[in-house]
Design a protein around this nucleic acid. Sequence first.
DNA 1: GAATTTCGTAACTGGTCAGTTACTTCTTCG
DNA 2: CGAAGAAGTAACTGACCAGTTACGAAATTC
Lengths: 216, 216
Amino acid sequence: MPKSKTPTPEPKRTRQPDVTRRNILDAALVEFAAKGLSGARVDEIAARSGSNKRMIYEYFGNKDGLWLTVLERAYERMREEEHAIDVARMSPVEGMRYLMEFNFKFCSRNPEFIALLNAENLHKASFLKNSKKIRELYTPLLVVITDLLQRGQREGVFRKNVDPVELYTTIAALGFFYFSNIHTLSTIFGRNLLSPKQQKVRLDHSIAVVLGYLRP
Amino acid sequence: MPKSKTPTPEPKRTRQPDVTRRNILDAALVEFAAKGLSGARVDEIAARSGSNKRMIYEYFGNKDGLWLTVLERAYERMREEEHAIDVARMSPVEGMRYLMEFNFKFCSRNPEFIALLNAENLHKASFLKNSKKIRELYTPLLVVITDLLQRGQREGVFRKNVDPVELYTTIAALGFFYFSNIHTLSTIFGRNLLSPKQQKVRLDHSIAVVLGYLRP
DNA sequence: GAATTTCGTAACTGGTCAGTTACTTCTTCG
DNA sequence: CGAAGAAGTAACTGACCAGTTACGAAATTC
């Protein structure tokens, strides 16, 4: 039975299932991102959440259920942030630049998201495939890119016959890869790619690549 | 004491430390790539290798030592294959195209390499950082790209002021990301990106992006 | 062919961890 | 207040697993 909100303006609640649930998910995100699915410890998540194991199993059934929920929540968050993007009033070039910057900085700001996706790919996306929610998560970024491409082509500033899905993948790749592989790349190149300076160089280059390609 | 080769042409050897060692590493590569470091089972590696746990601990000390050796070996293999690349006699455009194709197909052909790198990045490259061998593994691809860029710029077919390291990262990203995230991308797009047809579309697009960018 | 070293097997150990349970404490609401 | 149920705690269980050991078999050396 779905819990309907009581009309009484809640007094001082110390029982806060929603808060407890969210605390568990926050703790799980950190733990899973740091250690992967098999490396993560349920006891650690319980301790970090300020709650306890019993609540975890009450709300999420088991470790796998918790993993799936954390994963879905991460996608939802990305989708929410992407939804706020509005490039309709920008020029195609400006818009594309803004989009890439957003994507790059989202990756920079959400290393847990990167780690989570990599872990899920290690499992061949077996959890995501069983997710009912994921169908609606088709990323809004794709819609925005399609629009920008059309306008740019009409105005003659972008080349023709660019597949939006391919370009989306390219943009995603240019942001994601850098942060996904930042530790091995830093080691091999002997540079600290985490530094803001290096990140700026990388973003500028990425934008130059895509805009350079899009020239008619 | 390093074992010097006996002058006698070995008869029928049933003792073959090198073979056993390699079998263990092959088995470990598969297991680690499929399940990550913490998910992999030493018993499973022993069984798959046709050898046994005792030998694993004899040769590699512990699970972590085995992991590091597998990782180094994967890098070495890549380096060897890259070393065979010779684009000196190709035109800059041809050479760049060939290089990207090589990189893309290497990723396609070596999914274990992809999985290994992702797992190592999850650990913040802590094993690679402690590797003595890794310093010499600075990828030869970088040298080849630098050469191609110079020639292309001199001949006027490539734009000027392109940083080879940045371009290398871009090329690596365009190949790696697709295969690294192939399962989640396939799920979200509802397409089977593993199919050769989709792979060709992706490679063609990637080449078009880089060559499009490189136009003066 | 005896001594020595290498290799293989399987049982064992000590620790870890997902998931459960018994029990206590707190909150809510009549 | 007092009953009912929700939330919390910590000990427990049973499985699993990295790493070890004891012992035997085979191969190599002298």
